[in-house]
Simulated scan of single mutants.
Amino acid sequence: MTRADSVFSDLRHRIVEGQIPINSKLSEPELAKYYQISRTTLRDALSRVENCGLLQYKANIGYSVVTLSKEKLMGIFQVRESLESLACRLATAQLNLTDIKQLKMQLQKKHIENAQPIARAKHSVIDDYFYLHYQVVKASQNALLVKLLNEQQFYLIKLYMTTFRPGYTRSSTDYQEYLTILQAMENRDSELAELLMRRHISASCQYIQSAMP
């Protein structure tokens, strides 16, 4: 891992977790001093964080953490609803039964861990929210979909969730919806799997929106 990789990962984490507040302007000299890196290396890392949707750049002003809005959230989820449901339909034809059963086992394991306070403290429930989505998109085996719905774009959604829904309470509902989606995939019912994923993403959007001013 290069120094730019390390700074990129740390900045992304600090923004998503609220350690660097939304709308705040970043000082490149202060960040370069904090990370003990050159401005060139810092700008490489900042550019990559911008590509995740977490930063915005304006000439003569510099980088600042993005502004969050209901309109922007709706745009993100409209794209997700269309493309991830398509990925789910494609993945239904690509995954074998063993792979689907393995996904079920992993989801069950995470659900049990979430019920244990000690285990819960070691990982993020919000990260678990994205687990099935990562797997389904990759399993679609459609290179363009994987590129459009790569792991990085989920960090902006995670920022919305940690900002407006820090005490995530939908995990049990997510779990049941995921199992229903996987059951449809196991039954090779691609149309139902696509519909269920679409409904799940729509419900998730409404859940976040309900907490926004």
Rank of each mutant, 00 (worst) to 15 (best):
Q94L: 06
H111K: 03
K101I: 02
V125I: 14
V137C: 08
L68W: 00
Q102T: 05
N114L: 07
V146K: 14
N150H: 03
V137E: 14
Q102C: 06
L107I: 07
Y131M: 05
C88L: 09
L144H: 15
I76G: 00
K109Q: 14
N60Y: 15
M105I: 11
K72T: 10
V66Q: 04
L145Y: 09
R80S: 14
K104M: 12
L95Q: 02
Y63G: 10
N142F: 12
E151S: 10
K147C: 03
N60K: 06
V79T: 15
D99A: 10
E71I: 02
K101L: 12
R48W: 04
K70Q: 07
L97I: 11
L149N: 08
G62L: 08
D128Y: 06
N150T: 04
V136E: 02
K109I: 06
V49N: 03
H123I: 12
A93S: 12
C52Q: 00
M105D: 08
E71R: 01
L90W: 04
K58Y: 14
I118F: 14
Y131F: 15
L55N: 02
D99C: 09
K72E: 10
M105Y: 13
A143R: 12
D128K: 13
A139N: 10
D44I: 12
K122P: 08
E81R: 14
T92L: 07
Q153D: 05
S64W: 13
K109A: 07
V65H: 04
R48I: 00
A139K: 07
R89D: 12
V79W: 11
R48M: 01
A45H: 08
Q106K: 12
S140C: 11
C52V: 01
L46M: 11
V66M: 04
K122T: 13
E151R: 15
L132H: 09
K110F: 03
L103M: 06
S124G: 03
L103Q: 10
L46T: 07
L97G: 09
G75A: 03
K109H: 12
A59W: 08
N96C: 09
M74R: 13
